[in-house]
């Protein structure tokens, strides 16, 4: 970028005319920071539902994870790698909020802290920071603590035996899978069930997700593909009589499917670049979720499904290079052939 000092003669008092390559305009309203802020706004209804169901546990978990992610980002990125501070882009806060909302209410405080440091450290900074990571950082953090503290995050951790509220019940998918008991769908929809903090209320996830899609902080392709795939596969499972107490409605509204589809699979960094790529990505997530839910020891599989699909994103990108509007660039052979 050069600046040419220019003798202005009679033209105006401006002595310097900047020279730069075009385009010379920019949509200043849409920035990475705004995208992240919109995700946080989208998470607000989920947070509200979590507070309504779990009270102070929700505030504590999300607060711990948010602060720990900011601290980890500053430590790893700014102190250790000596890069300019990136806390202002809000991406660490988003990671912390999603991680906190994906934990059970009962997780001890150090689970959130360790999960946050794993999320930012192993999930993001080792890959080169924002935009470079292969796996969703929040899911990396959650997988790390899930394996490290299997008791604190297992299906049993959700249940507090003598609590008067929903906290005394097992999570709906666990119930359906283990005992064959059918949970009514309405509590799943509004969120009055046990589970990870952010996943219980379908309506809150839908509201927040709608905000993200409307503000274009995320794209609709992957969520639609996930929900569609799960709907089709769960209908098939129901017809085939696999876990008959879990209907299509349970699979769609229960567990963290909507939370994962709308807040985790919409993470732009770890999803494919093109619309068709994101559709493939969503179908894969839906497939992995159903395989884990129906045939594994875990009652829920969104986290592992997202991580598995993340690993396939580079491959999906290779498969889904779009063809330009006028067709591929003609090769030298065709040019001479006059075809």
């Amino acid at each position: 970028m050069t600046m040419v000092a220019h003798p202005p003669d009679r033209v105006g008092p401006s002595a310097i005319v900047h020279v730069a390559p075009g385009p010379h305009l920019q949509d200043a309203a849409f920035t990475t920071r705004r995208m992240m802020a919109d995700v946080l706004v989208g998470l607000a209804p989920v947070m509200a539902a979590a507070v309504a169901v779990f009270g102070w546990f929700a505030v504590m978990q999300v607060g711990i994870c948010g602060l720990a992610c900011l601290a980890a980002e500053y430590l790893f990125h700014t102190v250790m790698r000596r890069k300019p501070a990136t806390l202002g882009d809000l991406s660490a806060v988003v990671t912390g909020a999603i991680l906190g909302l994906s934990l059970p209410w009962s997780a001890p405080w150090y689970v959130g802290v360790i999960g946050s440091f794993a999320a930012i450290g192993f999930g993001k900074v080792v890959f080169g920071g924002l935009g470079m990571n292969l796996f969703n950082p929040a899911m990396v953090g959650r997988a790390f603590v899930m394996i490290s503290f299997s008791v604190a995050l297992g299906a049993g951790a959700f249940v507090l035996p003598d609590a008067p509220s929903v906290l005394s019940q097992a999570t709906p998918l666990t119930v359906g899978k283990m005992t064959g008991e059918v949970t009514p769908l309405w509590p799943l929809f509004v969120g009055n069930v046990n589970g990870s903090l952010g996943e219980t209320s379908a309506i809150a996830c839908l509201l927040g997700g709608l905000w993200i899609l409307v503000r274009r902080a995320g794209t609709w392709d992957a969520p639609l593909a996930i929900v569609g795939t799960v709907a089709v596969l769960s209908a098939g499972a129901q017809l085939a009589g696999i876990h008959p107490s879990l209907t299509v409605g349970h699979h769609l509204l229960g567990g963290s499917l909507l939370f994962g589809a709308l807040f985790i699979a919409t993470d732009p960094v770890t999803s494919p670049l093109t619309r068709s790529g994101r559709a493939v990505f969503g179908i894969l997530i839906g497939l992995f979720v159903m395989v884990i839910r129906l045939f594994s020891g875990y009652p829920e599989g969104v986290m592992f499904a997202v991580l598995l699909a993340n690993a396939m994103v580079p491959l999906i990108n290779r498969w889904t290079v779009p063809t330009p509007l006028g067709g591929p660039v003609p090769g030298p052979v065709q040019k001479g052939g006059g075809a």
Partner: peptide
């Protein structure tokens, strides 16, 4: 003439136009 706040003179429009360094 140019206003005092003018910083860039373009041949063409702002999307595909070229910045002019010499009037």
């Amino acid at each position: 003439g140019l206003r005092p706040e003018a910083v860039r003179v373009l041949s063409g429009g702002p999307m595909m136009g070229l910045a002019v360094g010499d009037l």
